[in-house]
């Protein structure tokens, strides 16, 4: 099983609902964010192209944060979800330095924090909070190892990209373009 997310950049309107849903669902401290929306504008007026992307931890197959962690607090959970065990984290921030996506931050309580793919919801058969609130349904969550899952079919049938593939992290968030 390999959990992944496909995000359709053509459907995303940049409303930031996913950001707020995550903050509420996961009790993210005020002033912090586990996911965020990026707007990329390319070209010269009037020939402009805009891409909107909802970004978060990529739950990489080859996670530099898991490798950098000196205590094993950062680890792979079921389906390749990358998690932090607060009671094992010493707050050294090596994982924050190691992430090419800057997806991690130090929680005010001292441990490293980031997106969990809402594992507590996924284990109950629900979608992550960001996916379930998206008003344009631009996000699809599922198992990439299952060829019949919606996400496998989407990634197969559409053009997609991952962020900074040259970093060698094998990310699991696919952006449909």
């Amino acid at each position: 099983m390999r959990y992944a997310m496909a995000i359709d950049t053509n459907l995303c309107v940049g409303c930031s609902d996913c950001v707020v849903a995550c903050q509420v669902e996961n009790n993210v401290p005020v002033g912090y964010a586990r996911d965020w929306v990026v707007e990329v504008t390319e070209g010269t007026y009037p020939n402009l192209a805009i891409e909107l992307r909802s970004e978060r931890c990529n739950h990489c197959d080859n996670s530099p944060c898991v490798r950098a962690c000196p205590t094993g607090a950062s680890h792979y959970a079921e389906g390749g979800i990358v998690l932090v065990t607060p009671e094992e984290c010493i707050g050294c921030a090596a994982c924050i330095e190691s992430c090419p996506y800057d997806a991690r931050f130090t929680h005010p309580d001292g441990y490293a924090d980031k997106c969990t793919f809402c594992i507590h919801r996924v284990q109950n058969g629900q979608d992550p909070a960001c996916v379930s609130v998206c008003p344009t349904t631009c996000m699809t969550f599922g198992d990439m190892d299952d060829p019949n899952s919606d996400i496998s079919k989407l990634v197969k049938s559409r053009k997609s990209k991952v962020l900074a593939p040259e970093a060698g992290t094998n990310p699991n968030i696919y952006y449909l373009t």
Binding site: A33, E39, F105
Partner: peptide, 10 residues
């Protein structure tokens, strides 16, 4: 490139 959701993680 703009981060429009205002991610300002300390």
């Amino acid at each position: 490139e703009l981060i429009i959701s205002g991610r300002m993680n300390p």
